[in-house]
Structure formats: C-alpha cells, structure tokens
C-alpha cells in the first residue's frame, strides 16, 4: 500500500486511508505508522483525561471507543489499533483521522483548532465554532465554488511566523440535510457511523499538499434574538486568545501532555499576526449568502 500524506507527515498504515493524498516527498522513514494489533484495556500508569481517554507519563494516549476499538498512540508516531470485530474501516478511520490526529498534534506541539478550512487566494481561511454552527457547510459551499478544502474538523496550525496551516485531507462530514440543501446526493457515500444519516464527502478539487499561510479565522456564532447578522473583527488580543483557547481541539489532551505553554504561545502569535473575525448569522441564514462577504473581508 502506498504511504499517505497527512499534515506534512509520511503515514504508513495497515488500513487503507483513501481520504489522504499519496506521499510524494522524500524517502524518509514514515513519521506515523498505523498497525492493527493487540491493545490492553488499561494504559499502565495512565491517567483518565476524559471518560474514554487515558494518557501516561511518557505522553502515550489510549482512546477506547466502545463499538469501534482501542487506539494506542505513542509519541514516537506508532499507532496501534485493536478494532472491535463489528467495526467498519470507515468507523476506524473516523477516529484515527479525528481524535487520534488531535492527540498526535498535541504530542508534536502543534495547535489543532476545531475548525474547517479552505484555500482562498493562496492562504488558508479557518471556520471555528461549536458543532452545528456550520463549519463544514461553509467549507462545502466554498468547495462548490472552486476552492480546495484544507481540513474539516481539525485545522492543524504550525506556529512559525507567519502561522501556517498544515493540510489534512479534503473530506467533509456532512448530514443528509446539508448535502441535499447543497444539491448533492449522499447515495453511495460512506456513512460516518452505520445507520447514521451523516456522510463522508470527498471534495472535488485536488487536495492541498504544502502548508498554507493562515489568512484569517472566522468564529461562527448564532445571532441571539433581536441581534443583527454581520462580520466583526476582534480587536483585543486577549479576546482573540480566549476565543482560540475555547476553539482548541481536545484542549485537555494538550494540557495533559504538558503543552499549556506552547499552546499559549501559539495563541499569542496568532492574535498578533492573523485577523480573527466573529461571523454572526441567524440559524436560518443561507450559507451561500456569506461567501462573498467572507472573501471580501479577507481581501480587505
């Protein structure tokens, strides 16, 4: 099986990862190696970080998803998966390319934001917000207008100057209603989980290989009653840093791995270098209505 490209890493895997672009880089030893194998139920000396996740003093993590399997993630880049017999490959990939990827980012001192992102004018634009706020929907609508999808759930930020986004893969997780609203059919697509009306949609444009400068971050929120819609730039660095902390993917994992300091520095760097906007929309707002305004905002 060909090695894949994930956030700039060379990844070799026992299970196929069709979401990823092929590795076309140098002949380095793979950064991440995914193997199927035995995984114990407990991590010796592991500490419970959340109900399904333990982390030990070496920085290794163990994620246990009841009907999917156990994922042991070592800081060396070795990932062992013990799948449940009934788990499908799609379900295994869902957690490998989600929670496990988030853990790998924290192990490697990157900043994973809970955000989708798309390429606009040679840079990455990220959309953050709680589940259901329209992150993937906005990414989908930009993809339908010819923009590449850089990431879906996790936007991986490298804190250099200027901050850069390491592309994940051009796959979006979309509910049936979202797809049908965008005139797409979910027929034939993999389901997020068996029986669920949420699908894995691979965006039509070639994925992005190289890191992109982070052009802007939009914090998606819903308008309260009587509140107007609009885009507002956050001016105070402290507000930006608080917002970015709230939008950090698996923040507790980062803290458990001793990354509080580097995460703080990453937020400070972004607050200094990258414009951050609050995009307030009504619940029933048409997604397409905001595409031009977002592009215009970025272009100033």
């Amino acid at each position: 099986m060909t090695d894949g490209l994930l956030c700039g890493w060379r990844i070799r895997s026992d299970i196929a990862l069709p979401e990823l672009l092929d590795w076309q880089g140098d002949d380095r030893i793979p950064d991440l190696v995914v193997r199927l194998g035995e995984v114990d139920e407990r991590l010796p000396e592991g500490r419970e970080i959340s109900p399904l996740l333990q982390i030990d003093g070496t920085g290794a993590g163990l994620l246990q998803v009841p009907m999917v399997g156990r994922f042991l993630v070592r800081p060396s880049g070795g990932i062992t998966i013990a799948p449940q017999p009934e788990a499908s490959e799609a379900e295994i990939r869902l957690f490998l390319l989600g929670s496990v990827l988030g853990m790998v980012c924290h192990q490697r001192a990157l900043l994973p934001l809970h955000a989708s992102s798309v390429a606009i004018d040679g840079g990455a634009v990220a959309f953050c917000g709680p589940s259901g706020m329209g992150k993937s929907t906005l990414a989908l609508r930009f993809a339908q207008h010819g923009h590449s999808v850089v990431s879906d759930d996790i936007c991986v930020i490298e804190t250099c100057e200027p901050p850069r986004v390491r592309p994940c893969f051009p796959r979006l997780k979309l509910w049936r209603d979202t797809m049908e609203d965008a005139a797409l059919s979910p027929e034939g697509l993999e389901r997020n989980r068996r029986g669920q009306e949420k699908f894995h949609f691979r965006a039509p444009h070639a994925g992005v290989r190289e890191p992109l400068p982070l052009r802007a971050i939009f914090l998606l929120r819903r308008a309260g009653s009587g509140e107007g819609e609009g885009i507002q730039r956050l001016a105070a660095p402290l507000d930006i840093m608080a917002a970015l902390e709230a939008e950090t993917f698996r923040l507790q994992v980062g803290h458990a791995l001793g990354r509080a300091e580097t995460l703080f520095q990453a937020r400070a760097l972004i607050a200094n270098d990258v414009p951050v906007y609050r995009l307030t929309r009504r619940a029933d707002a048409q997604p397409d209505r905001w595409l031009d305004a977002i592009a215009a905002t970025i272009r100033g």
Partner: peptide
C-alpha cells in the same frame, strides 16, 4: 446540551452510535 456533553466527554457525540452514547452518558 450537545456542547456541554461534548466538552466533558472529550469527543463529539455526533461520531458515536446510539449505544455508545448510552454507555458514555453516565461517565460524562
């Protein structure tokens, strides 16, 4: 509330099966 549950569970319930949610909720 989904956001409260996601936050304390450390993952997104929208990625879990109904049985997994039922198993997870007491822990959360």
């Amino acid at each position: 509330s989904r956001s409260l549950q996601d936050c304390h569970a450390g993952l997104e319930h929208s990625d879990l099966s109904r049985q997994e949610v039922a198993l997870l909720r007491p822990l959360t």
